[in-house]
Structures are given as structure tokens and as C-alpha cells.
Design a protein around this nucleic acid. Sequence first.
DNA 1: AGCAGGTTTCAGCAGAAACTGAAAATAGAA
DNA 2: TTCTATTTTCAGTTTCTGCTGAAACCTGCT
Lengths: 208, 208
Amino acid sequence: MPKPSSTNPNSSAEAQAQLHEAQDRFIASWGRMGSVWGISRTMAEVHALLYITGRPMCTDDIMARLGVSRGNVSMSVRSLLEWGVVEKVRLPGDRKEYYSAEQDVWSMMRAIARERIKREVDPLLDALDEIAELGPQVGARSPEEARELQKRLDDVRDGFGLITTLAHKFAGPRGAGLQTAAKLLAKAPVGRKATHGRSRNPAKGGSS
Amino acid sequence: MPKPSSTNPNSSAEAQAQLHEAQDRFIASWGRMGSVWGISRTMAEVHALLYITGRPMCTDDIMARLGVSRGNVSMSVRSLLEWGVVEKVRLPGDRKEYYSAEQDVWSMMRAIARERIKREVDPLLDALDEIAELGPQVGARSPEEARELQKRLDDVRDGFGLITTLAHKFAGPRGAGLQTAAKLLAKAPVGRKATHGRSRNPAKGGSS
DNA sequence: AGCAGGTTTCAGCAGAAACTGAAAATAGAA
DNA sequence: TTCTATTTTCAGTTTCTGCTGAAACCTGCT
């Protein structure tokens, strides 16, 4: 029910404001995250907004809530659609387009991981392969330095290659299995118990 | 043996130039990577230079090779030292400071991962915890929306929490075990075989 | 102590990225 | 088809980030 959030039996104006604030905080954090990841702050904020409210929203809703221009919303939504973390929704009897975010966190994370690998790791791997091909030339004249170079190149390649293989299992179309794998690995005693030093806020909602 | 790379029995001027070019390409790629990761291009380039040559270098060497200012080198090196991927080296009989990069790729990757988690994930987790504390207020007046909010917050938290736990095993002081774990996981049939569609350059000249 | 060689800091500049606003394009209704 | 509500594009503007270069600051030799 994408109802223009107005007076709802359950929510007083005050509670509304508090909800609003909590949401805004999430949006702000996610947005800051976005800058660190190299995507635009607004794009991350739009995504956060759609995710946290869970309701389809149209361009004007987003503009109003985030206080950004129409053009900016349009561009951000487009990227989000490309990433596959947001989809268009048509409401019958309304000419506007509505947008809503992927609600399953793991799908969402897969999508994010997929994009990031594409942008961050793959180009490096390509470059590495390309550079490796210069090796023989060097090797012809300077075998020792060529070997050193080749070794370092290979080391990096192998490291990132492994990570990529791993990540593709996670991010690929059938990647859901990795959620399980991750949980397994998280439990497995690799070295020692690595509590990440943060006490989970207890009870409350069970999750997916 | 940090010899100012001059005439070496094994290397003709030509081979030297070719080695140089291969290195430069690596440096450029790694530098581009850096921008994507939100660290300055120069910082990444300095690191790449120190890694790929494997030789300790002083400020002037770096300035000359990378064509950047003294101040820039100074700042970059400082960050690199903080990240723990580069260390100071004193050469006896020379007042200059020399710097050299961690040569083990896995240590290097652990260091990188550690920094990135610190900068990217931890703040989000903190924000999430903080926001979750606003929940009860909302809940008092609007139980339904509060539950929805809490659930979404928890979902994200759980997802990132799991990843963090995992990552800390990898990046932590005893994290070396994860190299093994990664290899294991890479082999394990999670769903289906995920060849990452890239054929490793097979010894010599593949095509580009 | 004074001095020479080296490193760090930082104000100002330059280039890049993000954002706006309005014009152009598009898609649905009649 | 035409008319109109909505979305997209893009040139201009603003904002941000990284870089430089010179002055200030260390550090250890004499």
C-alpha cells in the first residue's frame, strides 16, 4: 500500500517525526558510505531511502524528501536500475513511475559486490595480464630482473584472482549459496575466535 | 643492494627501458585502482612503485620517477606507513630515509582489507547500532512501522556484521589462515563451478 | 652551539566531480 | 493524431579533492 504517508491510525505526528529522524540517519550514513565507495552520495541516499521506507516512491517524493534536484534524482535512479538494486513500479491509474528497492539484503549485497568487482578488480586483472605480456621482452635482455618482475606480477594476480573467483561465487547469478558459505566460514575456527568486538543489540526482530 | 640502477652486467639500456615501461604500466593501473578505492592516486602509485621494484627508495627517487612534488610524496608515504604496507629503512652511511614495501602479497592484502573495513564498514555498523536505539521511541507510538524499520535495520546489520566477522579473520593479526580458507572455499562446490571467465595467460603470449 | 641536509606542513591553485534548472524528448490519455 | 504529464538530457555553476611549492621545522654531524 503505497499510501502518501499521512495520518495513519497507528502513528501520531510525533512518532512520525521520530520515524522520520531514524530513517534520515540511516540515509545519511548510507550516503556517506557511498562517497567512500566512489558512488555519488545522492545515489546512495536514494537507495537508502527506498530501502528503509520499503515503499515505492516517485520522483517528486524523492526530491522532496532528499532535497535534491529532479535531474539528480533521474540520474541516480537510472544508475540504481542499472545496478539492479531498484526497480520500476507502475501504479494503475497513475502516470508517474514509482521506484522501489530490492528488499532482500543478500540480493542487495550481491548486486553491490558485483558492481564493485566489475569496477575495482576486473580492470586491475586485465592490466596485470597485459603487463605480463611485456615480460618476455624484458626477459630477453635482463633475465634476472624479468624474473623478479614476473614474480611480483604473478603474486598480485594470483591473490586478486583468488579473491575474484570467490567473489564471483558470491555475486554471480547463483551466488546465494555463498550466504551459507559465509556463515559456515564465520563459524569455522580459522586460527582463533574473532568476535568483532561489538555487542549485538539483543532480542528484537528475527531476521530473514 | 639498493644500487642506483645503472649499468648492470645483465641489463642493456634497452631492456632497462622495457622493464621501466612494464613497471610504469603496473604503477598506472594500481594508481587508477587507488582512485576507485578512495585513496589518492599518488599514494597508490608510490606504493606500486615500491612494491614492483622491490628496492628501498628515498624521497628524491620517488619524486623523480613519479614526477610529483616533495610534499605529495611526504604525505603519501606517511599514509602508507600508517597503513602498515610500507616501512622506513635506514641505510648505514646515508642520512636519507629510505622506504620499502611489504613484499608478501597476502600481508599486503590483509593490510588493505583492514584499512578498508575500518573506513567503510565499521562506521556504518556504528551508525546502525545508534539508529537502532531510536527504535523504541518510534515503537511506543507506532508499533507497526517501528517493527518494519527495526527489521530492515537488523537485516543490514546482520549482513554486514557477518561480512565483518569474516573479514576480521582475514585481516586480523592471525589472519593468514584465511588464505587457506579462501583457497578451500574457492575449490568447494558452492552451487556450481564459477570459472571467472578469464583465462590465465598461459605462460607466454596470449592475445590481448 | 651552529649548520647542512632532510622532512613536514599548509595556503592557494587547478582540475574533476557532482548538482542544478530548464529545454528537449518521451509516453500515456483522449 | 494532438495534448499533457512526466522523464531525460546537458551546459553552466558550484563544490570538493588533490597537488604544488615554499616556509617552518626537525635531526644529527662538527
